[in-house]
Amino acid sequence: MDNEKRYSTRIKSERCDKIKISSVAAVFLVCSIVIFATRYRQDIWNFDRENGNDHQIENVATGSDASEEASEEKTTEKITTEAATTEKPTTEKVTTEASETEETTTAASSEEGGSTVKYVNIKDPDTSSKGNDWYDKKLYTPGNVTDDAYFDTAVLIGDSRTEGLSLYTGMSNLDAFCSKGLNIEKVMTEPIVSTSDGMLTALEALKQKDYENIYISFGVNELGWIYEDVFIEDYKAFIDAIREIQPNATIYVENILPVSKALSDEDEIYNNSNIKAFNKLLKRMCKDYGDIIYLDVASSVTVDGVLPADASTDGRHCNQEYCEKWLDYIRQNVYIKK
Results as ranks from 00 to 15, higher is better:
Glu4Ser: 13
Ile11Phe: 06
Cys16Glu: 15
Ile21Asn: 08
Phe28Ala: 13
Cys31Pro: 00
Val34Ser: 13
Thr38Ile: 08
Asn46Trp: 06
Glu50Ala: 04
Gly52Asn: 10
Asp54Pro: 00
Ala66His: 11
Glu69Trp: 11
Glu69Val: 13
Thr81Ser: 04
Thr81Ala: 08
Pro89Asn: 06
Glu97Met: 11
Thr101Pro: 00
Thr104Cys: 02
Thr104Arg: 06
Thr104Phe: 04
Ala108His: 01
Ser109Met: 02
Thr116Trp: 08
Tyr119Gln: 04
Asp126Lys: 01
Asp126His: 03
Ser129Leu: 09
Lys138Gly: 14
Leu139Pro: 00
Thr141Gly: 02
Asp148Cys: 05
Asp148Ser: 12
Asp148Glu: 14
Ala154Leu: 02
Val155Ile: 14
Ile157Met: 05
Asp159Thr: 03
Asp159Arg: 08
Ser160His: 01
Tyr168Gln: 11
Tyr168Ser: 12
Asp175Pro: 11
Cys178Phe: 04
Lys180Ile: 05
Thr189His: 08
Thr201Glu: 10
Ala202Gln: 14
Tyr211Arg: 12
Ile214Ala: 01
Tyr215Pro: 10
Val220Thr: 02
Glu222Val: 02
Trp225Asn: 13
Glu228Asp: 12
Glu233Tyr: 10
Tyr235Asn: 03
Arg243Ala: 02
Ile245Pro: 09
Thr250Asp: 02
Thr250Leu: 04
Glu254Gln: 15
Leu263His: 06
Ser264Lys: 04
Glu266Ala: 07
Asp267Ala: 06
Asn271Val: 13
Lys276Phe: 00
Arg284Pro: 01
Tyr289His: 09
Ile292Thr: 03
Thr313Asn: 04
Thr313Met: 04
Asn319His: 06
Cys323His: 13
Lys325Cys: 09
Lys325Val: 05
Trp326Met: 12
Tyr329Gln: 05
Gln332Pro: 01
